[in-house]
Write a protein that binds this DNA or RNA. Structure first.
Lengths: 231, 231
DNA sequence: CGCGGCTTTGATGTTCATCAAGTAAAGTGG
DNA sequence: CCACTTTACTTGATGAACATCAAAGCCGCG
């Protein structure tokens, strides 16, 4: 991690949209004065499971994975996202430790604010607290819904679902570079790496997608949606 | 559903513990005046997925399942709980509709408060909002963690996990009456009904549990924990 | 150029779903 | 309360889906 090289004016920060509506100038100044910004390179870990929670963290730019380590070579990926802006582990306001780890899948910019300052603002300002409550609920709900969506599908359906997730929720494009390894897709959907690769190969043979290394191009999105829905 | 037969004094209500610390007498009176209490018999549905959200709901007593219907005979159970006291669908403060359904697994007592009243209190009182935020985060985190715990196990491990969940989180006893059908266990752990039954039969043959209809007795909890952990 | 990690493919075996058929239990109407 | 119907449960047999293992190709990096 390195510090951001440009001074942060908070002006283009999306967090501001949540904040500014509810906080007075003084509170905003206080937030800005106490924030730390960090750049994380692709692959770097932003925080570890079981680290002590010290900051409320917000993903300004980039792409991250939220995951849990079970064994040496056994990871479960909980979410891959740009949108879950608050990338804090759940229970950030109660628990002492992060319950999950977060790592950057693309170069990412993180804004950190001391958790005690946020807690104080929450208790002082019900509108702010309600705003945070709603946003966090959305994040949680997305994670749970996605977990259920993946669970109800078979192998091919899960792979199709993930490919389409990148199309619609991450890149907004039918062609993109996978930000994750084949193994990470497997960790995400709860299947074996070999079978994820096999399924991608099958899709390619059937002309549904084209792959070249990390680059994925969706050729027949209707068919892929069909596989995702029926699987 | 029927109305509670005794007048509700809110005195033994656990919700009070969250509330009373932060709300003034007037607010508490307002809450109490606007609450509705309902008794739901085992099997009754408390609210349906896609119902319009009108109330903030709290489980005072009983046991419920939170679930999602995919097809006519295809349900996914998200959680079974006494403890997730706020049995609102997630995003209760933002969404218009419940995203999941809730049904009573045992006779249950539900307290409902108009959502607008709660919203008003949240914005007026940051401490109250923070209290709700923390409690909801705990609920979400439990659901997500459990989803991951189940996902990483195989069939036998999942069945063992669920049996142990009832022991430690629901009944605090090695012998209990299952509040769910075999099919519901299957919907909970994402396996087929036949295989759930087969696994229970296997456990019985191996002397790990005893079953008689809905009654389950754990005979060898160490072994069951082993199966849950290694599976 | 060579090493290690990621990817790919095939072969094999395990795990699990599905189907079918039968039994027990629970609800329903006379 | 009993006959009837329906729903839940149980078990076995079969095949499909998936994991695992192994070997080989590829790619980036020192």
């Amino acid at each position: 991690m390195e510090k951001a090289d440009k001074s942060c004016l908070c002006e283009n920060c999306e967090f501001r949209e949540v904040v500014i509506k509810y906080l007075d100038d003084e509170s905003i100044k206080k937030l800005c004065a106490n924030k730390k910004e960090g750049l994380y390179r692709k692959g770097e870990i932003i925080y570890y499971q079981d680290d002590k929670i010290s900051d409320f963290k917000y993903l300004k730019r980039g792409l991250v994975k939220l995951y849990r380590r079970n064994g040496l070579n056994d990871e479960q990926i909980i979410a891959i996202t740009r949108n879950f802006d608050f990338i804090n582990s759940m229970s950030v306001f109660k628990e002492e430790k992060y319950r999950f780890s977060v790592a950057a899948l693309e170069d990412s910019e993180i804004c950190s604010i001391n958790i005690e300052i946020i807690k104080k603002l929450l208790t002082e300002n019900g509108n702010f607290a309600t705003g945070i409550l709603i946003r966090m609920s959305n994040i949680y709900e997305k994670i749970i819904t996605q977990c259920l969506e993946i669970r109800k599908r078979n192998l091919a359906g899960r792979v199709a679902y993930v490919l389409l997730y990148f199309v619609s929720e991450v890149y907004n494009s039918n062609i993109y570079d996978l930000p994750v390894s084949r193994k990470e897709i497997a960790d995400y959907i709860g299947m074996s790496t070999a079978n994820v690769i096999r399924t991608l190969s099958d899709f390619k043979k059937e002309g549904i997608i084209n792959t070249e290394g990390k680059t994925i191009e969706i050729l027949d999105i209707k068919k892929l949606e069909l596989i995702s829905d029926k699987g």
